[in-house]
Design a protein around this nucleic acid. Structure first.
Lengths: 230, 230
DNA sequence: CTCCGGGTTTAGACTGGTCTAAACTGGCCT
DNA sequence: AGGCCAGTTTAGACCAGTCTAAACCCGGAG
């Protein structure tokens, strides 16, 4: 029996086109349109170039564009984006677990590899890693079919004293930030008892492994937490 | 202590530029110039495009071009090419040994990955694989510094009855050919006692693992053999 | 020694991706 | 209601990489 057709099939895209789709996905997913300038800043190119590219992606039916009002992924576009996100996250786990990278080194490398990863390689890595569900930074791996497990989570900076929470996700893009979080033990799965903070821009005070930690707001805002499961 | 500077450093090249360098290397290495048409055929593009690209690579000092007489890699160009060859061959071993690919599946994939492989990844894979010296098809891995172990070898089709030889290398580019060779046990390291052939275009007859094998000339020409080492 | 044919290079054109500068909204402020 | 500014789109330019068609060499045949 053949494998089912991928949800995200279609003509192959260029590197730049894929980057635009992924940026659109990472910015607001399918929740609301992304302004041209936002996208341009994210990609580090001019708004004019983005405008151009969006027109092409729109012709391909991957993006819907509302003149002067921004752009948003279509279903097909989202499928392609999730394919890339799956590649990216599988590669991050792979680089950490198989090649011994640290979690602050993997993003950049995955960013390049994700565009040339075949389906065969994706499947082999997925199996080798034991069908993982989360990447090293706590992000869920989209399924082959492009579905994504969603978990209720909020920023640590929004927590109140007395709460018991578990670190769920951190952003993978800033190596310095990641090293800082690692130094403090603020890694996915870490259990925190929030003591205080949240007022007057003061750091979040919490207990982690019987140790008192003070998390500056700037850090706390990048950490997403969830309820403990037990 | 810092690592020594790579022999092959320099400004980063585009995919197409790298493909041209590698094709030049694979065609005649540094032995003699490659004709424009040859290179074009190898790359599957027009001679005009090659002419163009060679001019640019020549400006970069990677290729020396003799009008109407062909082109050859400079020292620097050869360094870059060997860097890519190292990437390619390490990836092939990696795909076979770590991800469970068969030897006929690896070439195409390595062809894409080699262009986006960082030095860090190269080093990690090299160590993970135990500092290998040969890829799955028997080709030597260039060192980081761009040196290559050369072994005396010739085509199986040139062997005479009575010779004892060992399969050294086979081309990695044709999956069908590779499957055929595998089926017959004609893999690097296989020891052959040549019985006859070499006349009237007849197949090479030989003994392999106590079994009589008949190797059609077309196959025998793609197999490089060396003297047994013991 | 000239001419001719085949391979090489040049010319001109097109696409994708990028830029800057200019033209053009849309929404907000008065 | 009018006007202005920030942000968006369009215009025009450029580079890399490719093509086809035309111009150009080189070496061998006569």
């Amino acid at each position: 029996m053949d494998l089912p057709a991928r949800s995200a099939g279609g003509p192959s895209l260029t590197r730049a086109q894929e980057d635009h789709l992924k940026a659109l996905y990472n910015l607001h997913g399918d929740t609301r349109p992304v302004l041209t300038g936002e996208l341009a800043q994210r990609l580090g190119i001019s708004a004019a170039s983005v405008s151009d590219m969006v027109a092409r992606l729109s012709d391909l039916g991957l993006v819907r564009h509302d003149r002067y009002r921004g752009q948003i992924l279509t279903g097909a576009g989202q499928g392609r984006a999730l394919e890339l996100v799956r590649h990216h996250r599988l590669l991050e786990i792979f680089l950490v677990q198989v090649l011994g990278y640290t979690w602050d080194e993997v993003h950049e490398e995955a960013e390049l590899l994700e565009h040339v990863m075949s389906e065969r390689m994706e499947d082999r890595i997925f199996e080798l890693l034991g069908r993982p569900e989360l990447d090293p930074h706590g992000h869920a791996i989209p399924s082959r079919e492009g579905t994504l497990r969603v978990v209720n989570q909020r920023a640590l900076s929004d927590c109140q004293g007395g709460e018991e929470v578990v670190v769920a996700e951190v952003s993978d893009e800033d190596p310095d930030l990641l090293r800082e979080l690692d130094r403090r033990g603020l890694i996915p799965g870490a259990r925190l008892s929030v003591i205080g903070g949240t007022k007057y821009e003061s750091p979040i005070e919490a207990e982690l492994n019987e140790q008192r930690v003070s998390v500056p707001l700037g850090l706390a805002r990048t950490i997403l937490v969830r309820e403990p499961t037990d």
